[in-house]
């Protein structure tokens, strides 16, 4: 694995908000077909690190490269086109549209049909089928016709994951995907991530607080603390490190 070119690399990636350095010279590379867990206390900069990779925020300094191409200055949709996809920590959906339409829009974007002005959207059956296929995977098919804003929180979290699966990018970033889900819903999502991981082409970055989840899924853990990368390695090793124990002290490991 180490011989292969990493798919995603961040070099000295830094962002400052005023005087506050939220991500501080993080250099890290991610190999194809691996799942890396990113841990760290609240405010460590995990979400901000994701934002820098997927383009919602632009780096103050440092670089992001994908497949050897420098994407640091690219816009969000340009990065999406190149294979970076993201599920959000705070649910971020199309609230007035139906569940199916939310996923269909992703399929439509992938099929590059957004600028088709004169056909009827519903006549593109393949997009609807794709949407229903993904909805069946995340067990949301029975809610397909509901309006998203009326959906319970757990189902919205599932839909959040469904959008990312429908996008089917090379690099998938999950930001606490199971936070706020009921215990019986969590395994559905973990199983899906497991399945995505089995597809060797994909690279997964997962922000997660639940240590048991990390143990069962991650090939590697990196630890962020005050925006800095403080540990990087095998799950068992990293979890044993004092800095990690410390970071999770005063915060129940199972809490979201």
């Amino acid at each position: 694995m180490a011989e292969e070119h990493p798919i995603l690399v961040t070099s000295d990636l830094t962002i400052r908000f005023g005087g506050h350095v939220a991500v501080d010279q993080v250099s890290c590379s991610f190999d194809r077909g691996t799942l890396t867990a990113i841990v760290g206390p609240n405010g460590a900069g995990k979400t901000t690190y994701f934002n820098l990779i997927s383009g919602q925020l632009h780096a103050s300094s440092g670089r992001v490269t994908l497949n050897g191409e420098d994407i640091t200055r690219m816009s969000v949709p340009e990065r999406t086109d190149r294979g970076i996809g993201r599920a959000f920590q705070l649910t971020n959906l199309f609230p007035t549209l139906s569940v199916r339409e939310n996923v269909r829009l992703v399929a439509q974007s992938r099929a590059r049909k957004g600028f088709d002005l004169f056909s009827i959207a519903e006549s593109h059956v393949e997009l609807l089928e794709r949407a229903d296929h993904v909805l069946a995977e995340v067990r949301l098919i029975d809610q397909a016709d509901q309006i998203v804003s009326a959906l319970p929180h757990g189902d919205q979290r599932k839909l959040e994951v469904a959008l990312l699966i429908a996008l089917g990018p090379q690099v998938l970033m999950f930001d606490e995907p199971t936070a706020g889900m009921s215990v019986d819903e969590v395994p559905v999502i973990l199983e899906l991530i497991q399945k995505l991981k089995a597809d060797m082409d994909r690279t997964i970055l997962l922000v997660e607080h639940k240590m048991d989840v990390i143990r069962s899924l991650a090939d590697r853990i990196i630890v962020l603390h005050n925006g800095e990368l403080v540990a990087d390695g095998d799950p068992a090793e990293v979890i044993a490190l004092p800095v990690v124990q410390e970071a999770y002290l005063g915060k129940a490991p199972e809490a979201a």
Binding site: Q56, F88, N92, L117, S119
Partner: peptide, 21 residues
């Protein structure tokens, strides 16, 4: 049309619309 549907998505959540391309 697909375009019209996209407009609704942009109206609902432009931030997410960008993130799906």
């Amino acid at each position: 049309s697909p375009f019209g549907r996209t407009l609704k998505a942009v109206r609902d959540n432009a931030f997410r619309a960008e993130a799906i391309g």
